[in-house]
Simulated scan of single mutants.
Amino acid sequence: TFDAWPDGHVQKIYSALMSVEAQKHYSGWAMRNTNNHNVAILKKSCLGAFLLLLPAICDKARSKQLEKPCPKPGCSGKLELTPCRGQSGFPVTHFWRSCGDMVYFQGKGHHDHPRPQ
């Protein structure tokens, strides 16, 4: 079964024919594509979490989120981004590779922040 919230040092193999989420390299975590100099492997890095929502993937949009007030009714606080530093001080990374009818996944690091709500 597909795991939308992988955490830790994990490896999974999905059937591309059975899992649309694996085909789309989906994650519940806010992940940004990062260059790993290997076109056959998609590398994604965790962006951390705002307490009440997922951070935007785009740097410009994420900085705009920081300027907005808390979306929770009656809350006058500001959003604060908790960066992900769960891999020896660096963001957790996910690696995806498609090969034929299979999708290979590898996660490195444990998220050191809560899941977005």
Rank of each mutant, 00 (worst) to 15 (best):
residue 1 T to Q: 11
residue 3 D to Y: 08
residue 5 W to C: 01
residue 5 W to L: 07
residue 10 V to Y: 04
residue 11 Q to H: 09
residue 13 I to D: 06
residue 14 Y to F: 15
residue 15 S to H: 08
residue 17 L to D: 14
residue 17 L to C: 03
residue 18 M to L: 14
residue 19 S to N: 13
residue 19 S to H: 12
residue 20 V to A: 14
residue 20 V to S: 13
residue 21 E to I: 00
residue 21 E to G: 01
residue 21 E to T: 01
residue 22 A to Y: 04
residue 22 A to L: 04
residue 23 Q to P: 00
residue 24 K to R: 15
residue 24 K to C: 12
residue 25 H to A: 13
residue 25 H to P: 00
residue 26 Y to R: 01
residue 28 G to W: 09
residue 29 W to Y: 15
residue 30 A to Y: 00
residue 31 M to N: 03
residue 31 M to C: 02
residue 32 R to P: 00
residue 32 R to T: 08
residue 35 N to V: 05
residue 36 N to L: 08
residue 37 H to T: 02
residue 38 N to Q: 12
residue 40 A to R: 15
residue 43 K to E: 15
residue 44 K to G: 00
residue 44 K to N: 03
residue 46 C to M: 08
residue 46 C to N: 08
residue 46 C to W: 05
residue 47 L to D: 02
residue 47 L to N: 03
residue 48 G to A: 07
residue 52 L to R: 12
residue 52 L to I: 05
residue 54 L to T: 06
residue 54 L to A: 10
residue 54 L to I: 03
residue 55 P to Q: 04
residue 56 A to G: 01
residue 57 I to K: 15
residue 57 I to V: 15
residue 58 C to I: 06
residue 59 D to I: 03
residue 60 K to W: 05
residue 60 K to E: 15
residue 61 A to E: 15
residue 62 R to N: 04
residue 63 S to T: 14
residue 64 K to Y: 06
residue 64 K to V: 11
residue 64 K to A: 13
residue 66 L to P: 01
residue 66 L to H: 04
residue 66 L to S: 12
residue 66 L to R: 09
residue 67 E to Y: 04
residue 67 E to Q: 15
residue 69 P to H: 12
residue 71 P to V: 10
residue 72 K to N: 12
residue 72 K to D: 07
residue 73 P to M: 06
residue 73 P to N: 08
residue 74 G to H: 13
residue 75 C to P: 11
residue 77 G to C: 10
residue 77 G to N: 12
residue 77 G to M: 06
residue 78 K to A: 07
residue 79 L to V: 05
residue 79 L to W: 01
residue 81 L to V: 06
residue 81 L to T: 02
residue 82 T to F: 13
residue 82 T to V: 09
residue 82 T to Y: 12
residue 84 C to P: 00
residue 85 R to E: 10
residue 86 G to T: 05
residue 86 G to A: 07
residue 88 S to N: 14
residue 88 S to V: 02
residue 89 G to F: 11
residue 90 F to Y: 09
residue 92 V to A: 03
residue 95 F to C: 00
residue 96 W to V: 00
residue 97 R to I: 00
residue 98 S to D: 02
residue 99 C to E: 07
residue 100 G to K: 02
residue 100 G to I: 03
residue 101 D to Y: 07
residue 102 M to C: 02
residue 104 Y to W: 08
residue 107 G to E: 04
residue 108 K to L: 14
residue 108 K to I: 07
residue 109 G to M: 05
residue 110 H to M: 09
residue 110 H to F: 15
residue 110 H to R: 12
residue 112 D to A: 08
residue 113 H to K: 02
residue 114 P to H: 08
residue 116 P to L: 03
residue 117 Q to E: 11
residue 117 Q to N: 10
residue 117 Q to A: 11
residue 117 Q to C: 07
residue 117 Q to S: 12
